[in-house]
Structure formats: C-alpha cells, structure tokens
Amino acid sequence: MIFIKKIFLLFRRELKLSYTNIVDLFSNILFFFLSIFIFVFALGTDEQLLRTIGLGIIWSLLLLSSTLSLRKFYEEDFNNGVLIIMHMRGMSYELIVLLKILSHFLFVQVPFLISIPLASILFNLSMYEVYNLMVTFVIGSLILSCLGSMSASMNLLNKANFSIGGIIVLLFSIPIIIFSVGINEAGSDFMSLINILIGIALIFLGISPWASATFIRLAIKNT
C-alpha cells in the first residue's frame, strides 16, 4: 500500500514538473508545425503530392520534434541528487526508470497528440489515415519514451558530444517508422502490423529499464 502511494507521489511530482515546463512542450509542438511549413515551402504546394507523402512527413517530423527535449529526461533529477534519494527510500532504479518512462509518455508524448489532427488538415489527409496516425503514434510514442530514457541516461556524463543522444533515438526508431507508415497500405494486415508495433513496444519496455538503470548506476558511481 505504501508502495503504491509512493508511485502515485512520483507521478504527481512528474505531472507538476511537466506542468511548470509546459512552455517546453508547446515549443516542441511549435517546432513540429514550423518544420511542416518548411517542408511544404520546399516541396511546393501541389495538393496531390502533399497528400501522398504527407503521412510520412508528419511521422518523421513528429519523431524529430519529440526527440528535441529528451535530454532533460533525467538530467535535473540526476544533477540535484533526487535519484539517489528516491533509491534510498526503497525504490530500485529500474522502477524509477519505468515510472519515468510512463510519466513521460503520459505527460509529454500524449499531449502531443492534439497536434496531429491539425497537421493532418494541412496535408488534406483522409480520416482513415488520421486515425491510423493517431493509433500508431500512441504506440510509437511509448517506444520513443523508452528510447529517450535509454539515450538520456546514456548521456548523463556526456559533456562533449550532445548530438549522439538524438542519433541513438533516431537509429532505433527506424523500425517504428517502417511499421507505422506501412500500416496505411496494409489493408487486411492492419492488426498484424499493430501487433508488431506493440511487440516492439514491449521489447523496449523490457530492455530500457534494465539498460537505463545500469547507465544511471554508472553515472552515479562516477561523479
């Protein structure tokens, strides 16, 4: 019972923190729309062309803009020692990582969903495609949160090379984008592709707490 209370406490804190950082979320969304504009300016305003490639563009830009603020995943809690304090009060690093991933998913990635219908209007996508986009983004963003946790914890002690974190997220997000964008031509294979995506999400939900916790332990030992 006490344990569940602690978990809720952590969620509440994350919610408050993301509420105070709401500007950050909105600037990511702003970045997303600005990059859509830039894409459209570069490609021209041919309606047919935009409709065919719109989905791919939206997905890749969603990916890019949600990787922008991943660096902050653990940085603050690590630098001011909250991670150690939470660990000392009986939470393993794996649990902390899992809660962080879930709260990042709920409080940062899910609010991003509101921008998808707006972006779809800009590209004249059909309702079916918007629906697909929303469904795949919900699953894909869970994977992105896992990847973000891994790359952020990997780069806690990285003082020199800031772009490597983003590179790692993009590298492992290749399968997500293949299956998510492929879902539109799937037709009857719709559910199997969704299942593949959920499978990938579960794999990363399994790997990332272990990997991130190892990285965090390493970082804490070596500061």
């Binding site: 891994m150 990997m154 002690l157 990285n158 003082k159 020199a160 090379n161 490597i164 790692i168 492992f172 790997i207 990997a211 190892t214 990285f215 390493l218 970082a219 030992k221 070596n222």
Partner: peptide, 19 residues
C-alpha cells in the same frame, strides 16, 4: 571518443552493442 571516464565509456559501449 565521447566519455571522459573509462569505466563509464566501456560499459556504455557494451550495453549499446548488446542493444
């Protein structure tokens, strides 16, 4: 070339290789 601390570097790379 990224990490200053050798221990961190080695283990980070090892985990990255495994993933």
């Amino acid at each position: 070339q990224t990490f200053e601390n050798r221990d961190v570097r080695e283990k980070t790379i090892a985990i990255f290789i495994i993933i």
